[in-house]
Design a protein around this nucleic acid. Structure first.
Lengths: 333, 333
DNA sequence: CTGAAAGCGCTAACAT
DNA sequence: ATGTTAGCGCTTTCAG
C-alpha cells in the first residue's frame, strides 16, 4: 500500500534505523538531514505501520479492556473513561464484552494477551474459574477493575463498596427503616459481598436489619424476579437496596406493574448512579461511584513502568450518597 | 514468550508452511502428521500471534468502530451489537470515541486504517471536513452508520429517519397538537434534516405545523438550552419532538426545574429509545431505532467479500412508534 | 502435496 | 552518532 520506513530512508539518503530513531527516540540530527527526512515523509505520505511496530517491539500501543457488557451504562461510562485516558497516553483501546460468559472471559483475555496489549484492564463477572486464573497469571500490565479475581496478584482499582453499603444503611436507618431487603449481584462477587457487609453493619448499628437477601446477575430480568421475591417476603421489608442500575431497571418495572408506590410503600436506593437516574419516576436515591476516576486510574497503573520497585497497589475510590426522591420514611406500622 | 509456529513445526517434524496451511487453510494431511502437529501444539502450548499474522497478510482480524461517544446509550448499544456480530465472525473490535471532535475523527479513522482493520464502521458527528473525506476515500471495507458523509462512496446503514419523523408528526397531530417544536441535533447532519422533513410533512398533512426549530449537539447541555428556547417561544408549541435521548435528558431536567408539567402542559416525543425511557417521569413516548440490527448489518457488509460484483448498498432500517405517557392531547386553548 | 525462501514493516543489538 | 544486520512470527509464492 503506502510507503514504508525504508522508502523514506532511501529517499532521504539515510538508513532505516536513522529514520526510526528520529521518529521514535526523538534523537537530534543535523538540520539538513532531518529536513530531508521530513520532506520525504511528506512527499511519500508515509504513515507508520503499527502492526509492524508492535510485532518488532513485542508490544502494541493498545490497551485491552474486557468487560461484561458494553450496553450497561456503568461499563459504558467506564469504557468512555478508559478510552479517553488511553488516548491521552497515545494508546488505542481494544474492547471486548463477554456477555457474562466465563468461557469468553478466558478467550477474550487471552486474545488481548496475544495481541500484546500494553495494558489489560479487566472487569470480571464471575467467580472461580481456574482457566481464567491461569490465563491471567501470565498477563503483564494487568489491572483488575471493580471486581476481584482471587489469587491474582496485580494492581487493582475498586470503589469503596463496603462504605457504599454503610452509607446506604445509615441513611435508610436514619429516616426510620427497620427492615431492609438487599438485592445483590452474583453471590460471590466482591462487589456483592462488600456492599452487603457494609449495609448490614450500618443497619445493625442503627437499629435496623437486613431481613432478606437475594442474588443474581446484573440484568433487568433478575430485577424483575427480585421484585417478586421482595413482595412475597414474609419479612415485609420497607426499603430495598439494589446493587446495580440494571437490576434496578427491572425491579422498578415490576414494582410499577404491581402498583407498588415508591417510596410510600417501599423505599429504594441504588448502588451506582450511571444513567439518568435523576429523571426516573421517582428520582432514584443512589450511591455514586467515581467511574471516570476508576477508568483513569486503571489506565495509569497499567501503563506505568513495570520495573519500578513495583509493589502491586490496590486503590479504593470513595463513593458518595446522592439523595433523591426514592427513599422516604416508612409508613407507620 | 510462547512457542512459535516454527517451534511447532520442528517438534512435529514438518515445515512451518505445512503447519500454517494446516491451521489456516484447513488442508487435510495424513492422520499421523496431523496428530503430531496437534500434539506439538498442545505440548508447547502454542498460540498464534495475531500481530505477525496481520502483518504478513496485510489485514488484521479486527473491525474498527469509530463513534462520537461511547457513554451515550445509543452508541453503547450500537457498540454492543457490533461487538457481538464481530465476534461471530471471529473478529475483535477496535473502538474509538471522538468526543465530537472533527480532528479526532480524522485521526482515529486513519489509525484504524493503519492497523489494517478488516472493516471500518464509522458514525460521523460532523458535517463537511475535507480532511475526513480524503482519509475515508482511501478506506476499504468502510461502512457508514447512522450519519452520512457526503461524497463518500461506500455501503451505508441508516434507520428510516424520515419515516420516524412522519410517525411522530402523525401521532402528535392525531391527538390534537397544532404547534410542534423540533429540537434537532447538529443542523446539517442527515439524521437531523431527515427527521425534520418527515415531521414537517406529516404535521402539515394533518393540520399541524412545526412552529420552531432549534439545533445543537447531542448532549444534555444542549437539551437544557433548548428547553429555555421552547419556553420562551412566542409560538407556544404544545408538543416537542426531540431528536435524541441525550438531548431529552437535559430538556427534561430543565423542564422539571421550571415546573412544567409533562405531558399536561407540554407533550414530548423522543427519537431513539435507547436507555430505560419507559421508567422516566413520565414514561417517554419514543421512536425506536433497530440499533442491534443496524450494528449487525454493518458488520456483515464490512466483512462481505469486496470483489463480488460490488455495487455499494444503502440500507434503511425501519423505525417504530412506542406509545407511552409523555404525549397527550393539548389543553384546550 | 510439501518444503524452502522471501517477504510484511519496523526495531534493536551490534558494529563502525 | 549512523549504518548493518538480524530478527519479530507468520503467510505465501515458487520450486521440487
Amino acid at each position: 500500500m503506502g510507503a514504508s520506513l525504508s522508502d523514506v530512508a532511501s529517499a532521504a539518503g539515510v538508513s532505516p534505523s536513522t529514520v526510526s530513531r528520529y521518529l521514535n527516540a526523538g534523537i537530534k540530527l543535523p538540520a539538513s538531514t532531518s529536513e530531508r527526512i521530513d520532506a520525504a515523509i511528506k512527499t511519500l505520505r508515509y504513515v507508520p505501520n503499527p502492526l509492524a511496530r508492535s510485532l518488532g517491539r513485542g508490544r502494541s500501543d493498545t490497551v485491552g479492556l474486557v468487560i461484561p457488557d458494553i450496553a450497561n451504562p456503568f461499563f459504558a461510562s467506564l469504557a468512555s473513561a478508559v478510552e479517553q485516558a488511553a488516548e491521552e497516553h497515545g494508546q488505542g483501546v481494544l474492547l471486548s464484552a463477554t456477555s457474562n460468559s466465563a468461557a469468553r472471559e478466558v478467550e477474550y483475555v487471552s486474545r488481548m494477551l496475544r495481541n500484546r496489549v500494553s495494558g489489560l484492564l479487566f472487569v470480571s463477572g464471575h467467580h472461580n474459574s481456574s482457566d481464567l486464573a491461569e490465563t491471567l497469571a501470565a498477563a503483564s500490565g494487568l489491572i483488575l477493575i471493580d471486581e476481584d479475581v482471587p489469587g491474582i496478584d496485580c494492581s487493582k482499582v475498586f470503589c469503596d463498596n463496603e462504605n457504599g453499603g454503610r452509607l446506604a444503611g445509615q441513611y435508610l436507618a436514619s429516616v426510620g427503616h427497620k427492615r431492609i431487603a438487599f438485592i445483590g449481584g452474583p453471590e460471590k462477587l466482591r462487589s456483592t459481598t462488600e456492599r452487603l457487609t457494609g449495609l448490614r453493619e450500618a443497619a445493625e448499628e442503627n437499629g435496623a436489619k437486613v431481613v432478606m437477601t437475594c442474588f443474581g446477575n446484573y440484568s433487568p430480568e433478575f430485577g424483575r424476579q427480585a421484585a417478586a421475591q421482595v413482595l412475597q417476603s414474609s419479612e415485609e421489608p420497607t426499603a430495598v437496596f439494589v446493587s446495580s442500575g440494571e437490576i434496578a431497571f427491572g425491579l422498578l418495572e415490576a414494582l410499577q406493574a404491581a402498583d407498588i408506590a415508591i417510596p410510600e410503600r417501599l423505599s429504594l436506593i441504588v448502588f451506582d448512579d450511571a444513567g439518568p437516574l435523576h429523571l426516573f419516576n421517582p428520582a432514584l436515591t443512589a450511591i455514586r461511584q467515581p467511574i471516570r476516576e476508576m477508568g483513569r486510574k486503571a489506565v495509569e497503573l497499567a501503563l506505568a513502568e513495570p520495573d519500578e520497585n513495583a509493589a502491586f497497589v490496590e486503590f479504593l475510590l470513595p463513593v458518595e450518597l446522592i439523595v433523591r426522591a426514592s427513599v422516604t420514611a416508612p409508613k407507620a406500622t
